[in-house]
């Protein structure tokens, strides 16, 4: 329930941001045209229609979270160019993603996060992996499968995957939580996994 609520809040924030950016770039009429294409696509079950029904809850939620971005990217690219589309969609994903993480990641230090690690990583439905704990107080989440990367690849939108990765980085490097994230590779950038390494901050 919490996950769906978080997705709902994130979608509302992302839509608001998209509207603002589209009006800024294309004016009210142009923005309406782009959004019209996105809504039309969603009503037709795009962009994942040809893939058939989702095989799991994780995939269904992942489709919901990244499908709108694909349609928005396509609609903007049609109205303008690929660079503009990627830039706007990146900002929209960032806004929605930050809101999602704000709702899902407990505002707690590393000790609490270690206790709740399994629960926290389970709420990131797009990622499948393993958690482990280090002696220095940190913990790792090694992701070996990312539904975003797989789904985006299947609909020729792999270029959007990096925007989703950047949200994690932005959230944890912008002081939103009292923990540090270090990640040396991602599946989206061609790696075999995403190595999330959460460690404590030094107190002042």
């Amino acid at each position: 329930m919490k996950t769906k609520q978080a997705i709902g809040v994130a979608e509302r924030q992302a839509t608001k941001r998209a509207l603002g950016l589209l009006v800024h770039h294309f004016g009210y009429r142009g923005a309406a045209r782009v959004l019209g294409r996105v809504v039309y696509g969603q009503l037709r079950g795009e962009p994942f229609r040809r893939l058939g029904p989702a095989s799991s809850r994780r995939e269904r939620l992942s489709r919901r979270q990244c499908g709108g971005a694909v349609l928005l990217d396509r609609a903007i690219a049609r109205a303008s160019d690929a660079d503009t589309a990627s830039s706007i969609v990146g900002e929209v994903i960032s806004t929605g993603g930050m809101e999602f993480l704000e709702k899902m990641v407990p505002n707690a230090g590393i000790e609490q996060m270690r206790v709740r690690a399994a629960e926290v990583v389970d709420s990131f439905f797009n990622a499948e992996g393993q958690t482990s704990f280090d002696d220095d107080g940190s913990f790792r989440f090694d992701v070996h499968r990312c539904h975003f990367v797989e789904l985006l690849g299947k609909v020729d939108a792999s270029h959007l995957a990096r925007h989703f990765c950047q949200v994690d980085e932005r959230f944890f490097t912008s002081g939103q939580r009292p923990i540090q994230l270090r990640r040396t590779g991602t599946i989206a950038s061609g790696g075999s996994g995403c190595d999330f390494h959460f460690s404590p901050l030094g107190d002042e």
């Binding site: 230090g109 912008s174 002081g175 009292p178 901050l201 107190d203």
Partner: peptide, 13 residues
């Protein structure tokens, strides 16, 4: 500038 403390106020960078 990076967050450098666990207290809530340190979240404002």
């Amino acid at each position: 500038l990076k967050r450098s403390g666990t207290a809530e106020r340190f979240g404002h960078l």
